[in-house]
Amino acid sequence: MTTLLVAATGGHLAQLYQLRPRLVVPGSPVVWVTFDSPQSRSMLEQEVVEFVPYTPPRGYWSVVTNTFRAIRILRRYRVRRVISTGSGIALAFLPIARAMGRDAHYIESAARSDGPSTTGRMLQRFPGIKLSAQYSSWAKPPWNLNVSVFDDFQAVQRAEPRGDVRSVVVTLGTIEGYGFRSLLERLVEIIPEGVEVLWQTGVTDVSGLALTARPSMPQHELQAAIATSDAVVAHAGIGSALGSLNAGRRPVLVPRRSSRGEHVDDHQLQIAKELDGRDLSISREVDELMWADIEEAARWHVSRSSVTQ
């Protein structure tokens, strides 16, 4: 039985990749559907992948056009089950999968700690789609609680703290159409001279800033840089958070704000609050961020259970 794993790039793909061992029997056939990016090409290098056009936030016309691709992919691979962590790409695949008699399962993003996203609320209207939350606080019918990407991690303070912070990775993810210049400006202001910084900046405009930007990076390269760094500062996106945690780092997470045009809404505040409450990150707003926060994050190590490895 072929399982189709469907996710947008960024945090949605990172979550589904991590949850795969809990969702699919090892050795059974899997086909991935996602967008074409350095992250997806690196992460899924050894997998069967169908790339589809990017679906932006609230990009409903893209959902319609990808629905026709969904029909072809479902038939081509004789898919019996479709699992998605969203976002909008799930609307193109899960309803049509149910209409064609396939099993369909939607797992709401761990970014949503207080209720389902717009995508989740829309999928509630389609009978037969299995719905999963990642938080017990709102896992009420029709939503069930059976997976959470954060349950695998634990942060512990280092017995012998690192010395001075010499290297920092700054990662803003790869979301299209939304920059996060306010965070870069703050970091340029507070990071001392002599600290080595890798700046992964996405689409953010960096003109006039004293930094060398890398808009995107292969997943393995970014992970290796995080694992060898002293500290990580990231936008509070699921992908960046998971990347930091999987590399053993307790990140400083700074949420994008819709009022500054940095995202479509303020859901990153939920991610930052949840991980801060679990002691898995340090959460700060842009104007609150201090160098001392980055130094504090470097004093911790994050371990991961073997459940999903």
Rank of each mutant, 00 (worst) to 15 (best):
R186F: 09
L198T: 15
R121N: 11
W138R: 06
R125A: 03
E193F: 13
K130I: 01
V168D: 07
D205A: 11
P192G: 03
P192T: 04
Y178G: 06
A210Y: 02
V169H: 06
R186L: 07
E196M: 08
G115V: 06
V197T: 12
W138P: 08
G120W: 01
V147I: 01
P141E: 03
Q154L: 14
V169F: 04
I129M: 12
E189A: 12
P161S: 01
K140D: 03
D152Y: 15
S136K: 08
D205T: 15
Y178S: 10
V197Q: 08
D114M: 09
L145Y: 02
F150N: 04
K130N: 10
S137Y: 11
S132W: 15
L131A: 08
M122H: 00
V149L: 04
P116H: 11
P127I: 03
P161H: 01
P116Y: 04
V195F: 01
Q154A: 06
R125N: 08
G194H: 01
T174H: 01
E160T: 15
I175D: 09
G128T: 06
Y135T: 02
R181Y: 12
A210H: 04
D151P: 01
L172Q: 07
G194I: 15
T171E: 09
G173E: 06
G128I: 13
P161D: 00
P127M: 03
F180M: 03
P161N: 06
Q124R: 14
R121E: 02
T201H: 11
S113M: 00
A210V: 09
T171M: 02
P116L: 01
A210R: 13
L211I: 10
L211W: 07
E160W: 07
L123C: 09
N144C: 04
L131T: 05
R125P: 12
D164F: 06
S117I: 08
